[in-house]
């Protein structure tokens, strides 16, 4: 399996931000997106996840292959850790949650309500959610926010195992996760430039 992104253009709030984004990720590979704030990393990731339509270009894999994790985790504070994971597992039709719980060392927090978790613990739960999607391509937007060093290492291990089992990961992060053969992709030079003078209608895009 391979994810090929060809000449992708994405827009935020109706205004083109990136254009000509082309890369490919093969099974077992991780891609790290780099670029200054506001360049459009989140927009690109949301487009890849299928939450918004691209302005142009193609994405070779269907959105059914993507698992998306953003700044907010989709965790319900009134449900327990276990209930949260169970819910997403049954939505994605994945039979068990034990490997996700043990990978992020959530055993002791199992029956605690998610509202009582610290920010880092909550983030761990949010990332554990990825493991119960059963999907090959993980799309991660700043996954390490509020994680301490031990948790970052934990997360690094999880990603390595995911890649070893033939998965892929595309992430926007500034932190080194210890992934040796991760490819870095710089978005800096792909900022959208359209000539307004040429086409009046352009101002409407």
């Amino acid at each position: 399996m391979e994810l090929v992104v060809d000449n992708l253009g994405v827009a935020r709030g109706g205004i083109p931000v990136l254009e000509g984004v082309s890369f490919s990720v093969s099974a077992g590979q991780a891609l790290v997106l780099r670029g200054p704030n506001g360049i459009g990393k989140t927009t690109l990731l949301r487009t890849l996840a299928g939450l918004q339509a691209p302005l142009s270009g193609k994405i070779s894999l269907d959105r059914e292959a993507m698992a998306y994790a953003a700044h907010v985790d989709g965790i319900k504070t009134t449900l327990t850790v276990e209930e949260n994971l169970h819910f997403w597992a049954s939505v994605f039709d994945v039979p068990e949650i034990e490997s996700a719980i043990s990978a992020f060392e959530l055993e002791a927090l199992r029956t605690r309500s998610a509202g009582m978790l610290s920010a880092g613990q909550k983030r761990r739960l949010g990332l554990a959610r990825l493991m119960v999607t059963g999907r090959p391509v993980w799309i991660l937007d700043e996954p390490t926010v509020s994680l301490d060093q031990a948790a970052v290492a934990m997360f690094g291990e999880v990603i390595k195992r995911h890649l070893a089992s033939g998965g892929m990961a595309i992430m926007a992060t500034h932190i080194d996760l210890g992934l040796e053969d991760a490819v870095t992709f710089d978005l800096g030079h792909l900022k959208a430039t359209s000539n307004l003078a040429e086409n009046f209608d352009e101002a409407f895009l």
């Binding site: 709030g13 109706g14 205004i15 506001g38 900022k191 430039t193 307004l196 101002a203 409407f204 895009l205």
Partner: peptide, 14 residues
């Protein structure tokens, strides 16, 4: 109005 908003937004972004 729409055009001027779009132009302003682009100016801000570049």
């Amino acid at each position: 109005a729409r055009r001027s908003r779009a132009l302003l937004a682009r100016e801000r972004m570049s």
